[in-house]
Each structure stands twice: as structure tokens, then as C-alpha cells.
């Protein structure tokens, strides 16, 4: 029997993202050379919302991209099924840019490792920062996030899913036993 618990509702997600947007601006002293890149699939809509917020706060458009890290995964050929490849969209060189990569949940750190390797193929960024909505612990690599919505200590037998929908009123983060 699956037990499901909502740990963050739509308002909570919205407030976390607003805070992270301000933190990103504070840490980077504005939007100069700033690029927000969402990691497929979970990070894309979060990155999109962060971009909206930052653009509204600073009244300027900022650069934005999406990244599919599948081809850089360390288990890409060893999982049973070939993972589906989706489009990467980074139409500008990352040289000297301040890159904020965005994902929904930070877990083992393997996705972030892959994302950093992928980004290096697009140039030499000045720095890379990591923004996540949920940090659930259980790191397997020496990786930490720069901007965190909420830290949620979880057991390995639990699933955490961030459900973002077109109708933002019913967004939620749920934790369930698997």
C-alpha cells in the first residue's frame, strides 16, 4: 500500500522559488552574464519559472537553456532500457558565463556530475552554481547545491516527486513509500 504525503504545496513552491530568485541575484550581483539552464526533465519548468521571476525583478530578459544529460550519464549503457534522448537547447557559448543549473530534486549527485560534464562541452563558464527545489540527501558524489528550496531528509525507500503542472495552483511536492 502506498502512503502519500504532500510536503510542499503550490504556495510553498512559489515562495521557495521567489526566495531562490532573489538569492541568485544577490550572489551573482545582478544578471550580467547570467544563464539559467534547466536539466531535463524535472528542472526545465523550474528554470523557466526562475527566469520569469528574475526577469520581472530585474526588468530585463536573461539567457535561458535546457540540457538533456542522458548521454553523459554513468549508467547510460548499463540500464536495461536505452533512456529516451530529448533536445538540448544551449544556443550560445558558455565562455565567461555564470551558469545556474536547475533541477527539481538533488539526490545522489550523479545527474549534476553529468550536467557539469555536459556544460564543459559548451565552453568554459566562469562558474557553475546549482539550484534545486528539494535536497533529499544520500549523496554519492562530493556535490552540494548553492540554492535550495527545502532540505528534506528522506529514507532510501521513499520516492520524492515534484509535480509541476500547467495549472500552477495544484503544484505539489509529494513523498511516498515505494
Amino acid at each position: 500500500m502506498k502512503k502519500k504525503q504532500v510536503v510542499m504545496d503550490a504556495d510553498g513552491i512559489e515562495r521557495s522559488l521567489t526566495r531562490i530568485a532573489y538569492e541568485i541575484l544577490e550572489r551573482n550581483k545582478g544578471t550580467d552574464n547570467l544563464i539559467i539552464i534547466g536539466i531535463r526533465k524535472g528542472g526545465v519548468s523550474l528554470a523557466e519559472r526562475l527566469r520569469e521571476k528574475i526577469s520581472t525583478i530585474e526588468k530585463t530578459e536573461i539567457m535561458y537553456g535546457t540540457l538533456d544529460i542522458t548521454l553523459y550519464r554513468d549508467d547510460v549503457l548499463t540500464t536495461g532500457k536505452r533512456p529516451e534522448i530529448e533536445k538540448t537547447y544551449i544556443p550560445f557559448p558558455l565562455d565567461h558565463k555564470r551558469v545556474v543549473i536547475v533541477d527539481d530534486v538533488l539526490f545522489t549527485g550523479r545527474t549534476v556530475r553529468a550536467a557539469m560534464d555536459a556544460l564543459m562541452d559548451f565552453g568554459r563558464p566562469e562558474l557553475i552554481q546549482l539550484a534545486v527545489l528539494i535536497d533529499r540527501g544520500h549523496r554519492e558524489f562530493p556535490i552540494r547545491a548553492d540554492f535550495i528550496g527545502e532540505t528534506l531528509p528522506s529514507s532510501l525507500w521513499e520516492n520524492i516527486s515534484v509535480n509541476l503542472l500547467d495549472n500552477r495552483d495544484i503544484d505539489e511536492v509529494v513523498i511516498e513509500e515505494s
Partner: peptide, 21 residues
């Protein structure tokens, strides 16, 4: 065909190589 469509982008990069294989 879907997979190929996503792969097209790699050939437009400056560093046209991924470590998959």
C-alpha cells in the same frame, strides 16, 4: 527518428562529441 532529432544538436556544437560510447 525521435532520437535522431535530438542528436542533431550535437553536430552543431563547437565540441562535437559526447562520451556515451
Amino acid at each position: 527518428l525521435d532520437t535522431a532529432e535530438s542528436f542533431k544538436e550535437i553536430s552543431t556544437r563547437t565540441i562535437k562529441k559526447v562520451p556515451t560510447l
